[in-house]
Amino acid sequence: MTEEIIIAGFGGQGVLSMGKILAYSGVMQNKEVSWMPSYGPEMRGGTSNVTVIISDERISSPCLNQFDTAIILNQQSMDKFEKSVKPGGLLIYDPNGITSHPTRKDINIYQVAGTDKASEIGISKLFNMIMLGGLLKLKPLVTEEFLKKGLEKSLPTRHHGLIPENIKAVEIGKQLLNPYHVL
């Protein structure tokens, strides 16, 4: 098993930390992982993205141009990465702020209305975990047990009290998953 994922959105949406939690959970589950962030001027305000690879084998390139899965959180990232999903692959996006919806017919596309839900129930900081829930519903890359361990490893100790809320946000994301175009 090798899963090659791009997560892309605005800086501040929790793109890098979503990837980090996924990567840490993978490590806890004894997988090979790679987490490659965009670290350019774009991260100082503007778009941000991270490539996460989880595999049972030694990982080749940490930098890729074709992905099994794309999690897209803004229009700029949609414009950039919709075309980078492998045929038959998966695209999950938050429709909030998206003006041109994806048009690919050779991939599976799902919506997770994370922004709206997060502000509705007042957990905007957990937006990224809602989106992660959408992914884990379709691709159970890590189990809840290891996700908890991953959160413990990636969050500073003072925030460990928030882990149950993070797990709850993942569950909310799983329920929000809405098929947009399914093969």
């Binding site: 790679s34 987490w35 490659m36 962030p37 930098c63």
Partner: peptide, 10 residues
């Protein structure tokens, strides 16, 4: 280089 410097791995 910046790739191996910035990437996180086990």
């Amino acid at each position: 280089d910046g790739i191996i410097g910035q990437v996180m791995e086990k």
